[in-house]
């Protein structure tokens, strides 16, 4: 018997428990549309005077497409799992994982994939539908390749974001009142990841700084892959960068958790 079976089981349990809450699922689907509506009206107002003008390098259509794709992608990659992990640390629920022969991170990871599986598939379908509508509306053929690259990018973005959450959650080893901290970091991470609007808005200086962080590689990158703003070479390079950041964040979060765990176990530190 291998640990594969264990984590497969955890994955399935995550899926089952997500499906237990049908209304919750419906609401979370609906709530994905509201930000899109708001953004649609804002950008329509911004572009109203000069429909042909490009702001921040985006034409009106591009901006709307970005908004739609970014909203869906945000829903896919943002997990809020840092809240659950922080509560595990704060309330001592971590104990029940420590005493069993399982790895906490893997447990959480497979559970999360299970929980998000159904919802994320729906979101990907929604994006696919938008792409089809867009190509019909424009009379341009849809590029399947771009969609497949998007799938790869969004899966990596999900993993990368999960690792960012995992690293952030380690803060709970030191701070016990962390709910506002996560509220703050949650919103902040969404903004600098391009979940609200393209990161280009912040200007070249901030962008250059963000190039040295993993955030742009989550929502901003995936949304631009699917919207067609990036050339194939840029996409491949971006996916490579995602891979590198995944490895670095994995190492960083492991180190943070190791130090935090020593504190949790009462080793001082």
């Amino acid at each position: 018997m291998s640990s594969y079976e264990t984590y497969n089981r955890i994955f399935k349990l995550g899926m089952q428990s997500a499906l237990e809450y049908r209304m919750d699922l419906i609401f979370s689907l609906l709530s994905a549309f509201f930000p899109i509506m708001i953004q649609y009206f804002i950008w329509s107002a911004v572009y109203a005077d000069n429909p042909d003008q490009a702001y921040f390098g985006y034409s009106y259509h591009e901006m709307i497409m970005y908004t739609i794709f970014a909203a869906f992608t945000t829903r896919i990659v943002m997990t809020h799992v840092e809240h659950e992990m922080a509560l595990d640390i704060k309330d001592g629920h971590l104990n029940r994982y420590l005493v069993r022969p399982i790895n906490y991170f893997s447990y959480r990871f497979f559970n999360l994939i299970g929980q998000k599986m159904f919802f994320n598939c729906l979101m990907v379908c929604a994006i696919f539908a938008v792409l089809i509508c867009y190509s019909i509306y424009n009379g341009t053929p849809m590029k399947l390749e771009r969609f497949l690259l998007f799938l790869a990018a969004v899966i990596l973005a999900f993993i990368l974001n999960m690792l960012i959450s995992y690293a952030i959650a380690a803060i709970a080893f030191w701070l016990s009142e962390i709910s506002y901290f996560f509220e703050m970091t949650g919103l902040f991470v969404i903004i600098i990841s391009g979940g609200m609007f393209p990161v280009d808005i912040f200007g070249p200086w901030v962008n250059a700084m963000l190039d040295y962080s993993p955030f742009k590689l989550t929502i901003y990158f995936a949304a631009n892959v699917v919207s067609g703003r990036l050339a194939r070479e840029e996409i491949i390079a971006g996916i490579g960068m995602q891979g590198l950041w995944i490895i670095s964040m994995y190492i960083l979060s492991r180190i943070l958790w190791r130090i935090g765990m020593k504190r949790y176990l009462g080793l001082g530190g």
Binding site: M1, E5, R9, L13, E20, Y21, N95, R96
Partner: peptide, 24 residues
């Protein structure tokens, strides 16, 4: 631990028990 459950709250207990079969 009397006050800390290892059972999955939203699922029947048999699921958690089966999970422990794999874990152990």
């Amino acid at each position: 631990m009397g006050q800390k459950s290892q059972l999955w709250w939203d699922l029947p207990a048999i699921e958690s028990i089966l999970l422990n079969k794999y874990i152990y």
